[in-house]
Design a binder for these strands. Structure first.
Lengths: 241, 241
DNA sequence: ACAAACCATTGACCTGCATCAAGGCACGAC
DNA sequence: GTCGTGCCTTGATGCAGGTCAATGGTTTGT
């Protein structure tokens, strides 16, 4: 826990986090202030669970610092990552409007601070702010789209294609002709889970791309040597297979 | 197109359909009437497309009669069913609140009538009806949950398990000790697609269950001989594998 | 600094399932 | 009738990728 700030200071810090949140950009300051007044900060150590599937929903969350992994766990213990939320992103809005608890699990994958926006208070505010309700709708549509995209990834492509797709998402547009290097911010095991596979298979896929001179890998640094060629290969895979 | 009714008659029929819709149950009659006043009926022959992925969104839909299949198509032409909507269900709410068109394709799988609730009109109404916005949020959460469930089905289980799960969903609860017979309302090929596989594999899975004396299959009629035993097997598969 | 975990990589193996191919049934068209 | 055309079923084959196991590298705790 951080040292307890005064109430005013707390409000200011919270409102600042909320302003940075996609969901609330452009919202009048007094509304932000109001939300900040009933938001609750929660500190999570790396690995700690925020909530489990089925547990009663207290509200939705905004990430202030760190990262939260939202996932499902099968009866056999396998974990499918649904999404990873980082600073400024909001999640679990779905639990606001329906009974029945959270539909997935959420766990901090780094030391993390989240703001909990309690259900009852926020619903009260929403009643008087249809504008805000529309934003919530928009945010949920986004999540829906992400899920639909994930469905695609998992059902319609093989691992090589999913990896190529993922790599290309990290490239600036339009695709540069030169090489691009970036740092991996998660372990490869986690990346593998996001791609719906296991670390061994990811390792092989990376090795395959390396052998084809498409990328260079050194620890957490990945260099995409020829983005254009990678893109061509991706398109060809999608088109023919 | 149906023979054009008088404006009043049209309103009454539409409002009636809307009342039957989960999304609008309990809504005051004047609101229903207002929505009915700007809703537009669309007739779709079996097989006709309502919209395609990416096309600009006109609004969301309520099924009045028939059934609509919402799905994604990969570049290779494979189709993954996301959901099938029938009389009284609403879909494509996600397109309301965000730009960027519909995120999937929708096609009538029977002769169908849908009501289109146009985006602009409805958003206008929403601004003055926070209560209604909350319902929309609820409805979208439901869709989110369905998608999450679908994710589970596709990633965490093998075909046998998915089929067992699907069969058990058709059983009344609590599970009766006797046999249950029901008629399949789609072709097996379509069912296979919903389960994320192809007809040959589904055929084999059904044959496997038949050999284990779990079910009997005769054309479109399926009899679940021992629901309890099927349930046990499902649980065991989930637990151990 | 040392041990204990954890991560990453590679090889060997094996299984589930998509694919291809062929044959049997049903249905509507002519 | 009989000729498609589409659906279902079964067999044979191939392959992607999950699992197990061994090794070496890296981080964490004490």
């Amino acid at each position: 826990m951080m040292a307890s700030p005064t109430a005013d200071f707390r409000r200011i810090v919270f409102a600042n986090t909320l302003r940075g949140c996609q969901l609330f950009t452009g919202l009048p300051a007094e509304d932000l202030d109001l939300i900040a007044s009933f938001a609750v900060a929660k500190e999570l150590a790396k690995g700690a669970y925020l909530f489990h599937e089925g547990s009663a929903s207290e509200g939705f969350y905004v990430v202030q610092r760190g990262a939260v992994n939202v996932h499902r766990v099968s009866a056999s213990g396998k974990e499918q990552v649904i999404s990873v939320f980082r600073t400024g992103q909001s999640f679990a809005e779905a639990a606001l409007a329906t009974a029945g608890g959270y539909p997935a699990d959420a766990r901090a994958i780094e030391d993390t601070t989240v703001l909990l926006v309690p259900k009852a208070d926020f619903l009260g505010l929403l009643r008087g702010r249809p504008e805000l309700a529309l934003r919530m709708l928009g945010s949920m549509s986004q999540h829906l789209r992400v899920l639909v995209g994930l469905l695609d990834d998992l059902t319609l492509k093989d691992v090589d294609t999913r990896l190529a797709n993922w790599l290309l998402k990290r490239c600036p547009r339009p695709l540069p002709r030169g090489a691009i290097e970036f740092q991996l911010d998660r372990t490869k095991r986690v990346l593998a889970a996001e791609l719906g596979t296991v670390s061994e298979t990811l390792s092989r896929a990376l090795a395959g791309f390396r052998d084809k001179k498409l990328i260079r890998v050194a620890g957490k640094s990945i260099t995409i040597l020829e983005p254009k060629r990678l893109d061509e290969i991706l398109r060809r895979n999608l088109g023919e297979l």
